[in-house]
Design a protein around this nucleic acid. Sequence first.
DNA 1: TTCGTCGGACCTTCAATGTG
DNA 2: ACATTGAAGGTCCGACGAAC
Length: 267
Amino acid sequence: MPSVDDKSLDATVTSEPTFQPPLHSGSYSGMPLHVYPIPSQFLQSQQPVRSKRRQVKNACTHCQKACKKCDDARPCLRCVKYGISEECVDSQRKERKKGIKRGPYKKRDGKYRAGSGVAHSDVPPHGVHIPGGIGPPVPYMPMPGYPPGFYGHYPPLVSKQGDGQSVYTTPQYFLTPAPHSMQPGAPESDPNVYPPQGYYPTAVLAPLPYHPQYAMARADGSAIPNPYPIFPGQMYKNSPTVGQSDIIGGDRVGAGEQSEQVISDAT
DNA sequence: TTCGTCGGACCTTCAATGTG
DNA sequence: ACATTGAAGGTCCGACGAAC
Ligand SMILES: [Zn+2]
Ligand SMILES: [Zn+2]
């Protein structure tokens, strides 16, 4: 962390030209947002491959200060969780210095970076074959708990755009406003009215439906729990220092970073 | 158990530089 | 003009300690 006092889309970044409106959908896709792990059975070799971490273009001030994961939506999920949605704003970015002399460049082989740098590639060295043709093909392995054909963290469906380019569909999680019926404080009359003072409507993390019939048994025979716990419409008290204990309504599936962990670690 | 802090690894961006 | 390089600037993982 270079500086504490100051301090960007996931799927978009440099590889996706199409802008996705911030809807909390591009973020919590059941994984550290930007990390695409490569299951060991997908790997050609046995050597562990560390998947690349993706970052948001601009973290909000709170996440930045806390050195925690942010997302492109505003308010970001973390601020929503802590009940400080209205304080969730992009952090200021410095402008890059110009006129700095750099000296002669070393010439590289070039075969590693044919056209684009390795560091700029979204395709992991031993990546799985993403439907749509990104990355080298590997044998398909079904995801426990999901229908055949489901590709885990990669979007299960890839659509084509007019120019023939492959486009990922939305991830496995949607952060959507909790239904009116799930907002305890909301007046019955007007579903569009803002919740009563003192409360924030939170969003519902809606995972893809879990299909127990497709779940595979563990080696020890125990059942695999639903890896995607559903967040029922939680309500946070409108307090700047809201804690997990302030959540009313709905079950908690972990707290603090742990809940983020539950979301992001669910595989 | 939860949350804030923070060191440092990792990532993205883009000006400088190189090449045709 | 376009490609490549590489460092600045940024994000956030993961460890740790304090508070409850
Ligand atoms: Zn944030
Ligand atoms: Zn925020």
